[in-house]
Nucleic acid binder design. Structure first.
Lengths: 193, 193
DNA sequence: GATAAAAATTAAAGTAGTTTAATAAATCAC
DNA sequence: GTGATTTATTAAACTACTTTAATTTTTATC
């Protein structure tokens, strides 16, 4: 199991000794997903929180008209899951699937609870992770309220240049909340400048 | 200082003994705001996290055209602040002001850090608070992507019936991401059913 | 490497939501 | 309580974005 990335991710916020590190690692399971493979289906229970070591996932919904709306992309070094379903073990709100062949490390709710109990520092770790996620989401809500589609696209490129390379325009459009057709029009206008 | 509400808020997630409770209380400051009074101005540093014991606050931005966009309402039993500015002590992204005469309990970053150190259970408390806030925000993003303005309004009424009574339609519109004129049209259509 | 499938582009017609402006209703401040 | 200010309503013209559909380009698959 390749634990370099996740241990480095954790060490940015808390320091673990050898025993704690080993215990943490013992709670993880590895999983590989092929491109287009589903990790979670809406309505299922989300059994694990997932740390991406390689590849790219998307969290999304499908509306009544069959259109997909992307809540979040995840790439290497990101945590993804359906937090509501994970915490309550109620049916998931979101779908999660792989946009590329992807490798993740998974921790179940049961094991995470054990981890909080045995190594309370992880309360701090996930508090900090959640703070950052909260701030990023709040910013996105503000942009959805304040910006035009063009402004949101420009900001997306600036903020996630790696992602813009890796995912199709169709996916970017589903993230920005516009149609692929309109994104194409924006890009045309933008390119001619 | 009326600490009933905040202690009850905390007791939902962690248990404190007398010493811990007293220490926590000693870190709080009381503040009263008149209706329309600003708690935080964009560009200032957000010095405190704030727990509302009475009244109603709004967190918002003002765009280049002078329009206000509301990220969040806060009423009794809610925590509000500009988390990014609070954590980094960089200039605030958001304005916060009072929609009613309001009373809050404040904790500075310095005191919160002391609290985490002396009573690490609070790491858990704020992790849980943030989890809930994250889930609520993710849901809002999904609605902004998937729903029409009318659907968002209907969901808002269902989700926050108390708020719909307390704040003006203008504020609700600024939260939903539409103009007051269009909200009025939605309500008319809705009432005629 | 050829073929099929998916994604991107373009144009034209359509719609959800905005803008402006005028009027009515509610709320505020003294 | 009354005048002033803010909020809500209504209607009509407007615009950002969608829809549909046809064509081209890119990517996936055997």
């Amino acid at each position: 199991m390749n634990t370099n990335l996740i241990l480095h991710n954790i060490s940015r916020h808390i320091q673990l000794d050898k025993t704690e590190t080993d215990f943490f690692i013992s709670l993880l399971q590895e999983k590989k997903l092929k491109r287009k493979e589903l990790l979670l289906r809406q309505g299922e229970t989300c059994k694990t929180e997932n740390f991406i070591t390689k590849g790219c996932l998307r969290t999304y919904t499908i509306d009544d008209n069959g259109f997909e709306h992307i809540l979040m992309f995840g790439i290497e070094d990101w945590w993804v899951g359906d937090l509501y379903s994970f915490l309550t073990q109620n049916p998931a709100t979101y779908f999660i699937d792989a946009l590329e062949d992807t490798e993740i490390l998974q921790i179940t709710k049961h094991n995470l609870d054990k981890l909080y109990e045995r190594v309370p520092k992880f309360e701090r770790f996930f508090r900090i992770i959640l703070q950052n996620a909260f701030i990023a989401q709040q910013n996105r809500i503000n942009q959805n309220l304040s910006f035009t589609a063009e402004q949101r696209y420009i900001d997306f490129i600036k903020r996630y240049p790696q992602l813009e390379q890796r995912v199709s325009q169709k996916q970017v459009a589903a993230y920005l909340g516009i149609t692929p057709v309109f994104l194409s029009m924006i890009r045309k206008k933008f390119a001619s400048k």
